[in-house]
Design a protein around this nucleic acid. Structure first.
Length: 453
DNA sequence: GCGGATCAC
DNA sequence: TATGGTGATCCGC
């Protein structure tokens, strides 16, 4: 509309004004500017409306939580606090500082691979993904606020010269495999958490090879630092890509540390209780794996933003959250984490699924076709992995972004296409029946999952 | 056991 | 024009 165009015009004038105040060559946007552009591109969309609804529900939940807190007596809180203090003592005494755990994280992985293989991409702002969704971006693009998990069309508003590259997963898998070939030399039980992240335990490697690192020219004053510098060097030699690393006494801390000197850097947190506690106390809880946007807001409402804030509030936490969550928070506040890398990769798969997003439609025929094709995809992968399952679940996302799932448990496990298709169709039909011709079920995503494998 | 929510990557 | 796909876990009911 005309108004929209005027809006765009205004933004771009303001934009130039801000740019002119910067030094020549400085084109990056400030946070407020970035938010304004994202806001403008989002507001009014069904996606944004759904997100706002979710935020309202969360706000209500937090308000409820606060009023529950007002209902607790100081005696109740004090008693809960004492109880948690006892658990803390037990956990604290079990602390294991004997292992040296490393978390390796490739820098802007997909983007780095594309830049490596195409020199034209090296000096420009670029991102890997599509107009709908970005997987990652390079640092030139990040200056403009272009980030992973951002839709490409919004990224282009932030950075009009952004180059979008489609992902080449086969290539990334090949690089990941090479990365594994390096890591296995340092720990035969290393575990890949994704294509670009891995944990390893270098305790044994250090014990067996300490002499070899004694006079090495590698950077780093300590043995762990030298070993990890060597690992990153090996990865760089093998892949032409840089990696960052964290070194600590457990996986939780190693993961946090790998983020501190990114890109192409490493951080060593010595295995010493005082050092660890000082580190953890000033650490933002949001940096901890498992604390996301929602938990951050809930904890924020209790006045908790750093891991050091946890213990003083642990009584309240135990009264407000589940036992599992309270125990988890206790572990976080102590800087405890998994010290058995091999155990992290040990578990069997628990589900397999296939889902896809498409232009919203309420045509039964179209929806059935999409569902059938997802069933075929799932069936194919079940065959490949030689897996059967008893529980079939369909997942649907309406055009208003509301997600629902419906499942049916079978008498016996199966991998047959016929069964998967008929069951999932039945589940979808049952859902369609809840809607009228006037207001039909209109979807933007359909998925099928097999579990109870 | 089911469905919704949350989280990581 | 346009906001992903896969897998895991937890919680309330």
């Amino acid at each position: 509309t005309k108004f929209d165009n005027l809006g765009e015009q205004r933004v771009s004038l303001l934009d130039n004004l801000i740019l002119n105040t910067h030094k020549a060559g400085m084109k990056d946007l400030d946070a407020g500017k970035i938010n304004e552009i994202i806001q403008k591109a989002s507001e009014g969309s069904l996606f944004y409306q759904h997100k706002q609804q979710a935020q309202l529900r969360l706000d209500a939940k937090i308000a409820e939580m606060k009023s529950a807190i007002d209902g607790f007596t100081t005696d109740q809180v004090a008693a809960a606090h004492k109880q948690m203090e006892r658990q803390r003592m037990v956990l604290s005494e079990e602390r294991d500082l004997s292992r040296t755990i490393v978390h390796i994280d490739m820098d802007m992985f997909y983007a780095a691979v594309e830049m490596r293989d195409n020199p034209k991409l090296r000096d420009v702002a670029m991102a890997v993904g599509s107009m709908s969704m970005l997987s990652t971006s390079n640092y030139a693009a990040r200056k403009f606020g272009v980030r992973a998990a951002m839709p490409g069309f919004i990224a282009l508003k932030l950075c009009p010269e952004l180059v979008l590259v489609s992902p080449n997963f086969d290539k990334y898998k090949a690089v990941s495999k090479i990365m594994g070939q390096v890591l296995v030399r340092y720990d035969a039980h290393y575990v890949m958490m994704s294509l670009d992240e891995a944990y390893l335990d270098i305790t044994e490697h250090m014990a067996a090879n300490s002499d070899a690192y004694q006079h090495s020219a590698l950077p780093g004053d300590t043995l762990p630092e030298r070993v990890v510098a060597q690992i990153r060097e090996d990865i760089c030699q093998a892949t032409q890509l840089t990696a960052s690393a964290g070194i600590a006494a457990n996986t939780r801390l190693a993961k946090v540390c790998s983020d501190l000197n990114k890109p192409d850097g490493q951080y060593y947190l010595p295995a010493n209780v005082d050092t660890i506690m000082a580190f953890v106390n000033s650490l933002s809880i949001r940096k901890i794996n498992g604390i996301g946007n929602v938990m951050e807001q809930q904890l924020g409402a209790l006045g908790i933003t750093s891991c050091g804030d946890v213990m003083p509030h642990i009584g309240l936490i135990s009264l407000v959250f589940s036992e599992a969550s309270s125990s988890y928070m206790l572990n976080i506040s102590l800087g405890l984490g998994c010290t058995d890398v091999a155990a992290m990769g040990a578990g069997d798969r628990k589900s397999m699924s296939s889902e896809t997003t498409f232009a919203g439609t309420s045509s039964k025929q179209q929806l059935f076709d999409i569902l059938t094709s997802q069933c075929q995809q799932l069936h194919k992968e079940l065959l490949q992995a030689n897996i059967r399952g008893k529980l079939i679940t369909i997942k649907i996302k309406r055009v208003d972004f509301v997600i629902k799932s419906r499942s049916l448990s079978l008498g016996q496990s199966t991998q047959e296409l016929q069964v998967i298709v008929s069951v999932s169709k039945k589940l979808l039909c049952q859902e369609m029946e809840k809607y009228s011709q006037d207001n039909p079920l209109t979807l933007r995503l359909i998925g099928v999952r097999m579990s109870s494998l």
